[in-house]
């Protein structure tokens, strides 16, 4: 592989979100994977970045609104008759 073909860590950084979201072109994906097979730090960055996003998705869960907050919201909007 020539130096030009060798994707640099810094260039890889700019494509990481698209790579993890699966929206990056096939060619670039292959370049990233080739680079990761040779670069330990980049592999760790990609793995821990993917894990970071996964953890946030895990914690997002269903949204919840406390009853007292809902009640005050309905009163503010003059929707009192719809408070169950």
């Amino acid at each position: 592989m020539t130096d030009q073909e060798h994707i640099q860590c810094r260039e890889l950084l700019g494509s990481l979100s698209d790579y993890i979201d699966g929206t990056l072109g096939e060619q670039l994906c292959r370049e990233i994977e080739r680079h990761m097979s040779e670069c330990h730090n980049c592999r760790v960055v990609v793995d821990t970045l993917r894990k970071t996003i996964h953890l946030y998705h895990q914690t997002a869960g269903p949204a919840d609104l406390p009853n007292s907050v809902r009640e005050r919201l309905f009163r503010t909007l003059h929707l009192d008759e719809f408070i169950r």
């Binding site: 860590c9 810094r10 950084l13 700019g14 330990h40 730090n41 760790v44 960055v45 793995d47 821990t48 894990k51 953890l55 895990q58 914690t59």
Partner: peptide
């Protein structure tokens, strides 16, 4: 773009540790 500064692979920590009350 700020370059990453941490290169420890912590992915192997178990999920219950990653998502403990302190982790969350």
């Amino acid at each position: 773009l700020e370059e990453p500064a941490e290169f420890t692979d912590w992915c192997c920590l178990p999920e219950e540790e990653l998502l403990s009350a302190e982790g969350r």
